[in-house]
Amino acid sequence: MKPEHLLKIIFEYTTRITNERNLDTVLTLMADMGRDMIDADRCTVWLIDRVHEELWTRVAHEVGELRIPLDAGLVGHSISTGESVFINDAYTNEQYKEVLSTGALRTDLLTGYTTKALIVIPFRSNDGKIMGCFQAVNKNSNDGAFTKQDLEYLTLAASYSGKCLESALLSHEIEETQKEIIFTMGEIGESRSKETGNHVKRVAEYSSVIARGLGLSFHDSEILRMASPMHDIGKVAIPDDILNNPGKLTEEEYEIMKTHAEIGYNLLRKSSRPILQAAAIVAYQHHEKWDGTGYPRGLQGEQIHIYGRITAIADVFDALGSHRIYKEAWPLEDILKYIESERGKHFDPRVVDVFMDQLPAILQIRSSYSDVNLR
């Protein structure tokens, strides 16, 4: 490879990696950069999972997530010793014959791939600790063999990537913590009305499926999935005697109950974080109706944010299908008839259509997060 072409690859990828904080995207870019720098058939970025004593990759070209024991194969050998590995005869190599049988060759059996040549290079954090490694497989050349120059180039990629990955892992940890806090807060709101935490999990997953079916981007669908558990957070301020009343609420009690939408909005609206901003919208608008008869503001049609319109149908579907203190769960057939009858009244017609299209996935979610199954 000509030096100017190599520099172009490095510049293009480092610019993108530096500006990216999503862990999956960073790992994908790292794998792509390594592959392109040495013209490998495949490149995998392995990370250490200290909790489970495993090596894992969510990004491996042509395959999905893989997990292997921490000491397995050449990847485990490289990480445990801190040494790079360079071989061009995977199935006959005597030096690494034993470790190959527990790693790359075993993976071949799982994936149907044939490994000939391998480069494995550990990468380190800013404080020098090994975080994982690059693994390149099979050179795209007539003999499929890597060169010493390929080893040097991939070492360069590993040196840079370790530093960037540390920042992405920190951002990922912060994001996962935020998700956990949001789900916990959502469960608090539900538990005060004697509803299960699984309700907010189901509504979150339903909302994400519907959003993707409507053509929202992956980013926006994920924002909604993380925000929708907060839809009833305002219930924390509703008195117990109203919240848990098994009978029909009086008009005055119902007006108090309705205030949970605005209360939730006011709890969340001052945040500058995109997830909590979305949660404020969902809390405020998930009781609005397409025909303008909802609350708290009587919004109509597309005045209602798409997040509110999606969460509305997800929440109603799950509420009708769940046992509550004031009602028994409805049969699925009755729920679907009700949703169809509210098309263009309570619900956005387009959202109803997508809901029905996505019903198999929605029912799978309902089964996976069943209150019975998770007790």
Results as ranks from 00 to 15, higher is better:
residue 4 E to Q: 13
residue 5 H to Y: 12
residue 17 I to K: 03
residue 18 T to V: 10
residue 21 R to L: 15
residue 22 N to C: 12
residue 30 M to S: 11
residue 37 M to C: 05
residue 40 A to C: 06
residue 44 T to E: 06
residue 47 L to Q: 13
residue 53 E to Q: 15
residue 54 E to I: 04
residue 55 L to T: 03
residue 57 T to S: 14
residue 61 H to D: 09
residue 72 A to M: 09
residue 77 H to N: 12
residue 77 H to S: 11
residue 81 T to K: 14
residue 81 T to N: 13
residue 81 T to M: 12
residue 84 S to I: 06
residue 86 F to C: 12
residue 103 G to W: 00
residue 104 A to G: 05
residue 104 A to W: 04
residue 111 T to Y: 00
residue 111 T to L: 00
residue 131 M to G: 00
residue 132 G to P: 02
residue 132 G to T: 01
residue 141 S to C: 07
residue 146 F to V: 11
residue 147 T to Q: 09
residue 151 L to P: 08
residue 153 Y to Q: 11
residue 156 L to W: 08
residue 156 L to Y: 13
residue 158 A to T: 02
residue 163 K to F: 10
residue 172 H to W: 06
residue 173 E to L: 09
residue 184 T to I: 03
residue 189 G to K: 01
residue 190 E to N: 07
residue 192 R to C: 06
residue 195 E to V: 08
residue 197 G to Y: 07
residue 207 S to Y: 03
residue 208 S to R: 04
residue 217 S to I: 00
residue 227 A to G: 13
residue 229 P to I: 06
residue 233 I to K: 05
residue 234 G to M: 08
residue 237 A to W: 04
residue 238 I to L: 07
residue 240 D to T: 15
residue 242 I to A: 04
residue 251 E to W: 02
residue 251 E to G: 02
residue 252 E to G: 01
residue 253 E to I: 01
residue 254 Y to E: 11
residue 264 G to I: 01
residue 266 N to A: 08
residue 271 S to K: 13
residue 272 S to G: 14
residue 278 A to W: 06
residue 281 I to T: 09
residue 282 V to Q: 03
residue 283 A to H: 04
residue 290 W to N: 04
residue 291 D to L: 13
residue 295 Y to W: 14
residue 300 Q to W: 09
residue 300 Q to D: 09
residue 302 E to C: 10
residue 303 Q to A: 15
residue 307 Y to V: 05
residue 319 A to I: 14
residue 323 H to L: 10
residue 326 Y to I: 10
residue 333 E to F: 08
residue 333 E to R: 14
residue 335 I to W: 05
residue 336 L to I: 12
residue 339 I to R: 09
residue 346 H to L: 12
residue 349 P to V: 03
residue 351 V to K: 01
residue 351 V to A: 05
residue 351 V to H: 01
residue 355 F to D: 01
residue 356 M to H: 03
residue 360 P to T: 03
residue 372 V to T: 14
